[in-house]
Simulated scan of single mutants.
Amino acid sequence: MKIENDAHASDFPLDGNVLLGAFASSPTPMALVDARQPDQPIVWVNDAFTQQTGYGRHEVVGRNCRMLQGPDSDRAEVARIRAAIAAGQPCEVELFNYRKDGTRFWNAMTINPVRNAEGVVTHFYSAQADMTEKQRLEQAMRNANDELERLVDLRTADLSAALEQKTALLHEVDHRVKNNLQVISSLILLKARRTPEGEARDALQGIAERVGALSTAHRMLYSAGDATRFNLQDFAADLLSDLNAGLDPERTHLEGAFDPIAVSAAMAAPLALMIHELTTNALRHAFPGDRAGRVTIEARRQAEALHITIGDDGVGLGSAAPNPAGFGRSLVEMVVRQLRGAIAWHENAPGTRVEIRIPLGSED
């Protein structure tokens, strides 16, 4: 018979024996049950079914498919099969079935109702597949994943413990450094008080103040939750509070605006020293005599760089009294170079403005 390309399957009805022969020779285990008989017995199975289950055809025909169930068959899945059959609906399940010799296997079943011309369900057709190896591989994968998660959890716990120990050690180091710097500052101030007024006494007091700024930076690191980071905003707030406490509010104003910028702990001491030096120099030299004025300091993050600006409306660089013993400007420029930054000094008319740019990159 020649079948044209535009023919429909309904144009060529197949003999039932042809279909039965095709199903009988299929490598897929198949079974047909009669929905009209009591207990819906098996009425036909193919050779693949008998090979999968170990039962002969004569041993299964006339019996209900529940004969393949056993102790490990999932009761919920079995109930799902019963509900689908009662409703005349198709269903797909996977559950343990048992062969004739008692060995169990994962059976994936697709069960479909077969209806007559009037739409009445007369039979149920089941196609099956042994999924034991698939389930074994999936279980092995789950076990491997569980073991991997266990090892990751153990490694994470080890790393967390090591990090906690490192953090505690860094806190302890910063605490001891801070205490030692405070002792050094106190000793220098004590020596300054016993030194006659003049350049030597001023120099000792200046050194004590610088050591105090470093002590404040280490106190910030010690009190922070993350000992590897330094909050510039917190340091600036402490510094400005200390400096404002020693100023005459009727004559000198010190104002600051800092973004909440966290930088690496390695940058803490250089930044603290630089900011302290520029601010105290402005307060000390920009307003000689009874001159009133204002000092402002800002720190902003712009792209991948820290921008610091310190300005005053004082007498300016050119008009300030010379200080042969001073090295504040040299100290600031040295620190900026250490931080791979750039600094510019400007006459502000009136006053002075210092602009500093320090790259943050991966440090922030």
Rank of each mutant, 00 (worst) to 15 (best):
A208Q: 06
R201S: 10
S25W: 10
V121L: 09
I207C: 07
A203E: 04
S186P: 00
L306F: 08
V177E: 02
V332L: 02
T103S: 14
R82V: 07
R99T: 08
G289C: 05
A269G: 11
Q52F: 10
G246M: 07
A7R: 08
S362W: 12
D248N: 15
H171M: 02
V93K: 04
T228V: 05
E255V: 15
P270C: 07
N116Y: 11
I184N: 01
D11S: 10
A349E: 11
Q338K: 02
V78K: 00
V173M: 10
T296E: 15
V78G: 01
L32T: 03
Q233C: 11
K134R: 13
A266G: 05
V18R: 03
T296G: 15
G311K: 07
E363M: 12
R201D: 04
R82Q: 12
F105L: 04
N323G: 00
N112H: 08
L239K: 02
P359W: 15
R150P: 01
G54M: 07
R284F: 08
I184L: 15
A127M: 14
L154E: 11
Q52P: 01
A303H: 15
A24N: 13
N107F: 10
P350D: 02
T195H: 01
E77V: 09
K134P: 00
E164F: 10
A140P: 02
E138A: 11
M334H: 09
F258G: 00
V60L: 05
S264V: 09
P38E: 14
H218S: 02
P113A: 12
R176Q: 13
T28R: 04
A224L: 04
T156P: 04
D238E: 15
F287R: 00
Q40M: 13
S160G: 01
A161H: 13
A286W: 05
L163G: 04
R251F: 08
V121P: 12
A262N: 10
I308L: 15
I358W: 06
A299T: 02
V336T: 09
H307M: 10
V93I: 15
G326Q: 02
G70P: 06
E59A: 04
V173Y: 11
G328K: 03
T252Q: 13
T352F: 00
N348I: 00
Q69D: 10
N112I: 14
S126V: 12
A305Q: 14
A24T: 08
G225M: 12
Q69L: 08
E304H: 14
A217S: 14
G212N: 07
G341V: 08
